[in-house]
């Protein structure tokens, strides 16, 4: 198992380099001359030349990349072109908001999606199965911000039981207040993921339940809960974990849009501001961090795979 883990972690290294390279090239992908774009349309040739030098755009590409990459690995993502704040600092300030939202949403989606999917799988074709199916399709069809708006209207404005906007950290307001701010946005983010998880769990579990080892478990007199919850579920978990990892990027995306609806000072507004202002170092920092998050999610999924499928560990 240790060897398997080491192998997976090692395999992540080239991916990190590639992602960094891509992020770095973003600068060069900006339409037109990056220096012109950053210095502004009305800049004088001197100002443009100055910008070019300041950004190191006159150096060879690989050299620039290497400088940036080694700095990024040390946590130094550069300085914002506009606020002068360090990019790392800005990310560290905003990330907890989005991370809280994403983690709470994830937990919600797993806590609701997996049991519902399992319930549907044990009674295929039943009323429960159909209700779960329809609810899932609905959740998948509605964009997160629409769900967010509906939630705001119903719970924050009509019923006025939960705050409509803002964010309080645990340090500032305690767990209760923190959660009350997160509940509605988390539901909006979790809906899609939960529906996808329910669908995948149902499919994978149905498949596992038709396997011979499930018949064996029944023939050994194991309780139904153990047959489904232990024997079938551990085998069905692999595809579900895959979906979870694949959806990490989507969850981040959904979190960003939902943050807007709830006016939360998260990663989303940071990213949008950076793009609007063509704050290149900030954009790079935001994309680099997001890519790392998705990568870590995939790595965790890989490790979970090893646990779920002993055959993989051996290879």
């Amino acid at each position: 198992m240790l060897r398997f883990m080491a192998q997976r972690v090692l395999m992540a290294v080239p991916v990190i380099v590639l992602v960094s390279l891509f992020v770095f090239l973003l600068l060069d992908l900006l339409p037109g001359d990056a220096a012109v774009a950053i210095a502004g349309e009305n800049a004088t040739p001197e100002q443009i030349a100055d910008t070019r030098e300041r950004l190191g755009l006159d150096l060879p590409l690989l050299e620039r990349f290497w400088d940036w990459f080694t700095a990024a690995l040390h946590g130094d993502l550069g300085t914002s072109l506009y606020t002068g704040q360090s990019v790392g600092g800005a990310v560290a300030e905003r990330l907890p908001v989005t991370a809280s939202l994403a983690v709470v949403a994830l937990l919600m989606a797993v806590a609701v999606g997996v049991p519902l999917g399992a319930l549907a799988a044990t009674r295929p074709g039943s009323r429960v199965d159909r209700v779960v199916g329809v609810a899932g399709s609905l959740a998948m069809a509605l964009p997160p911000f629409v769900i967010a708006l509906v939630l705001v209207v119903v719970f924050a404005i009509r019923l006025a039981v939960l705050p409509a906007t803002g964010y309080e950290s645990i340090a500032d307001g305690g767990v209760g207040v923190w959660l009350s701010h997160l509940l509605l946005p988390a539901v909006a983010v979790a809906a899609l993921l939960g529906a996808e998880l329910a669908r995948q769990t149902r499919g994978a579990l149905l498949d596992a339940l038709s396997q011979s080892y499930v018949r064996t478990a029944r023939a050994r007199g194991l309780k139904p809960l153990s047959v489904v919850g232990k024997h079938a579920l551990k085998n069905a978990a692999a595809p579900v974990v895959t979906v979870l990892a694949l959806q990490a990027g989507h969850v981040l995306g959904a979190a960003v849009t939902v943050e807007f609806v709830f006016a939360m000072p998260g990663f989303g507004s940071l990213a949008v501001d950076a793009v609007n202002q063509r704050d290149v170092p900030m954009i790079q920092g935001v994309v680099f961090t997001s890519a790392l998050v998705v990568l870590v999610a995939n790595l965790l999924a890989d490790l979970a795979y090893g646990y779920l499928n002993p055959k993989l560990r051996a290879g």
Binding site: R215, T216, H231
Partner: peptide, 14 residues
């Protein structure tokens, strides 16, 4: 009870 396909009758995950 034991079955025809011994390998598939055992749970691969335990």
């Amino acid at each position: 009870m034991i079955f025809q396909e011994p390998r598939r009758s055992l749970n691969p995950a335990f």
